[in-house]
């Protein structure tokens, strides 16, 4: 009895949990090891655990750029895709912030008729399958002349990003409370001063978290960009898709995969301080 009691209360890992964490680390990180190796391989025959011939041994002899030479050359369109991804992500984040901040303030602080219905409507883009939206939007955008344009892609990216942004910012406003603003007003600050000197500084960490997360969602979107970009606008996910669509992965595709992973790693390192797990603890639709 006493022993069982101890296990149930323990704040330390059980042996199974230790083992499980190792398995998870292997599951998440493991595949990246052969990916890095593959990106440096020239010939990697089947049962060998390491490539027989490496890229560096062959790069002088080859006629065309190989592996990393190809990835970093303009032929691979990696640079173009990176610029597009960052550009679209930045604009989407800016628009999303601008339109979600006021809405989040209202949702966090005011009561009005139809509020719960409105909140449910806001969550809908998360649970309507992307393929349904993507193809229907493409039809609409072809009619409007927006297919294959930056405007079209940016507009489409707003659909899945708004729900996350509104949720995160609403949580921030709820945590902020109204007292500090009211005190500033009592002390004679005008609306603009309250916004600039009280509200914004207190909101900042939450706003940064929302912005980072929105940027992240936007840079990861494949389907909407692929359908609406019409092959004219490549981003990192769609570029990688075109490289691996055949179901094989050569050295240059492995290199591109690593490049596509890079923004995520950078965002992970920056955002860990800002994106709090607590922001995701809300139930659905209420």
């Amino acid at each position: 009895m006493a022993k069982k009691f101890n296990i149930a209360l323990s704040s330390r890992l059980s042996p199974f949990q230790k083992f499980y964490l190792l398995v998870i680390a292997g599951f998440i990180l493991g595949p990246f090891i052969p990916l890095v190796i593959q990106s440096f391989a020239f010939r990697w025959a089947w049962p060998d655990l390491l490539p027989g011939t490496w890229w560096l041994e062959q790069r002088e002899k080859a006629m065309a750029p190989l592996a990393w030479d190809y990835v970093l050359s303009p032929y691979s369109r990696v640079w173009e895709a990176t610029v597009n991804t960052v550009f679209i992500g930045t604009i989407v984040t800016a628009i999303c912030l601008a339109i979600c901040l006021p809405a989040a303030r209202v949702l966090a602080r005011e009561k009005f008729r139809g509020k719960s219905a409105f909140e449910f409507f806001l969550s809908l883009p998360l649970i309507v399958p992307e393929a349904a939206i993507g193809i229907a939007l493409l039809m609409m955008f072809i009619r409007l002349g927006l297919a294959g344009s930056y405007v079209g892609i940016i507009l489409a990216h707003l659909i899945p990003t708004i729900p996350y942004m509104v949720r995160m910012l609403t949580a921030v406003y709820q945590g902020l409370g109204r007292d500090f603003e009211e005190q500033a007003m009592i002390l004679g600050a005008n609306r603009w001063q309250v916004l600039r000197l009280v509200t914004l500084p207190m909101l900042l960490p939450g706003v940064v978290a929302g912005a980072l997360f929105t940027f992240l969602v936007s840079t990861n979107i494949f389907l909407l960009t692929f359908f609406l970009g019409q092959g004219q606008i490549v981003t990192l996910p769609t570029l990688l898709f075109s490289k691996i669509a055949g179901g094989t992965l050569d050295a240059s595709a492995a290199g591109i995969t690593l490049i596509v992973t890079l923004p995520g790693i950078i965002l992970l390192i920056i955002s860990e301080r800002f994106i709090k797990e607590e922001a995701f603890g809300k139930g659905f639709g209420n």
């Binding site: 996910p237 691996i244 492995a254 992973t261 995520g264 790693i265």
Partner: peptide, 10 residues
């Protein structure tokens, strides 16, 4: 943090 296409490549 990374796109599905990376998962597919892996």
């Amino acid at each position: 943090m990374i796109p599905y296409t990376v998962g597919i490549a892996l």
